[in-house]
Design a protein around this nucleic acid. Structure first.
Lengths: 131, 131
DNA sequence: ATAAACCTTCCAGTGACTGGAAGCAAAAGT
DNA sequence: ACTTTTGCTTCCAGTCACTGGAAGGTTTAT
């Protein structure tokens, strides 16, 4: 299977697949003309990559997921732990973004938003030390 | 004021301040010995940068904030619009992270998490196309 | 025969820093 | 006065996960 077909099968851009090969996440075969040749197994790995990236796993986490998925003797506990870690990270991001949201909302509420140059937002941004 | 003092006054790392100068966000004076010399006004700009970055504004947005803060004839409406845009972006990020959280939670719940190699998470990751 | 679509590699850029090396300048300690 | 430490300078390279583009070879369709 050519790289373009693999791309449409997985939803990954061609460039991204080449990049994944470059950093050793997948190792497609090569044809006589130099074209990459993707096996079904390889496409499955790409599908895992696409899906896991979509879920916010880093490429290093994806690497571990791939090695777990290749390991017939794996314990599902290990996969779960990885996912759990990722979940924590997502929750932390949500928490800090929520704090941002509140602060921005407060700032916006305090600003008149008219033609005059005095602005509560700028006042706040310049007023205090960072944090 | 030396760069180190400016750094402690604003909470920004020295390296970051130099980077901000490099991309033209601030332009401190220079002393005879080549050291940067930060005026109070310059430090205020750095404070704005620190605070705005902390609130998730991009550096390009910060650039616009700085030019608005320097413009005596600005309309606070414009500042508000910028903050409002940022708020939307933050809300979108929160929404998509929340979707991730739900999906991860579901996946984790389906996985036994024991010694056995069969794992609902891996099954899911390899099963379908990436969207 | 020609055009288009597809493949290859390599180089450079993104955003926002961050780390490190090599080399002066200034401040502090003895 | 001398030495050590700290602080400043520049420049180069790396991070993460791609993304764009150039220059060129291959295959497929017309």
């Amino acid at each position: 299977m050519n790289i373009g077909t693999a791309a449409t099968q997985t939803g990954l851009p061609v460039k991204t697949i080449r990049y994944y090969e470059e950093i050793g996440l997948v190792t497609p075969d090569r044809r006589a003309n130099g074209y990459r040749d993707f096996s079904e197994a390889c496409v499955e790995q790409l599908r895992l990559l696409a899906q896991a990236r979509h879920l916010g796993f880093s490429l290093e986490e994806c690497r571990r997921l791939l090695s777990l998925s290749a390991d017939e003797g794996r314990a599902s506990r290990d996969v779960r732990a990885l996912a759990q870690q990722n979940l924590e990270a997502v929750r932390e991001k949500i928490a800090s973004l929520s704090a941002l949201e509140a602060q921005l909302q407060r700032l916006i509420a305090q600003c008149h938003g008219d033609d005059a140059p005095d602005c509560a937002i700028l006042d706040d941004l310049m007023g205090q030390r960072g944090n």
